[in-house]
Amino acid sequence: MTRSFQYLRPDFPREACEMKAKHGGKAVFWAGGTDLMLQWRRGAVDIDYCIDLSGLDELRQIRSGEDATVIGALATIASLQAHESLGSDFPVLLDMAERFATPQIRNVATVGGNLCHGVPSADCAPPLISLDAEVRILSPEGERTLSLESFFVGPKQTALADDEMLAEISVRRLPPRSVCTFERMARSYVDIALASAACRLTIDEESRISEARIVMGAVAPVPLRSTGAEELLVGIPLVDITEGLLAEVGARAASDTRPISDVRTTAAYRKHLSGVLVKRAVAEAVRRLGE
């Protein structure tokens, strides 16, 4: 049932952290609210204190710097699409944003909210992890930074302590000769991903793969990186990447997955699909690097 709650609206990030510290587990941050509202209406979450973050304008910005781009946790998905240089610096984020839910939801949903909800199917996670994104976390005492990959702890669980909030996501400029791709599949045009896969490849001057990132969504308790699959690619010249190797990479990634069966699909299908999507994401990255 719907219950009433205390509504709080901080003016500064630090104040938000203090409110959260004070009320702990009984308080939630309200960013876009697109997930939270559904959960609250369904009775899946109890809210005693709702901390509305809409006053924290500084966390809504996307700043492109020399070395890195910093995405405020409150930047909406639509603002990724609208940003003047994000799409050219990180085309994969634009690609992801365009496939994220509907325009109405993209106008409201935030990058930070998508990540902090902590679901393994979050669309923002695989591409950002493949870009080695880092997160800046604030607390009343100060701040800390950690990799986005280690931010996810379990289903709907993140590394955030009760008094912490996600402030920013930082993505370093990619080395030259890098490409990042994203594949997702869902039951219909507007849907949560049944599985997704992001791949980032960097090649050296001899066109050998020097760095690989393979990250899958919705196939494990957290967005899942397959270092085993990555290792199969590192050191391989682009021209030597065969259909057979791609299949091996997909199979290796799929073997790392620990998917569940739920109302959306079966574990067996998710496992199979993750292999197909990884293979396609890698193949597409290889194709683009070869252009």
């Binding site: 559904l38 039951r187 219909s188 045009y189 507007v190 849907d191 949560i192 109302v263 959306r264």
Partner: peptide, 9 residues
Amino acid sequence: LDYKVMRAP
């Protein structure tokens, strides 16, 4: 959310 009707696209 989980009953999937076709969307226009």
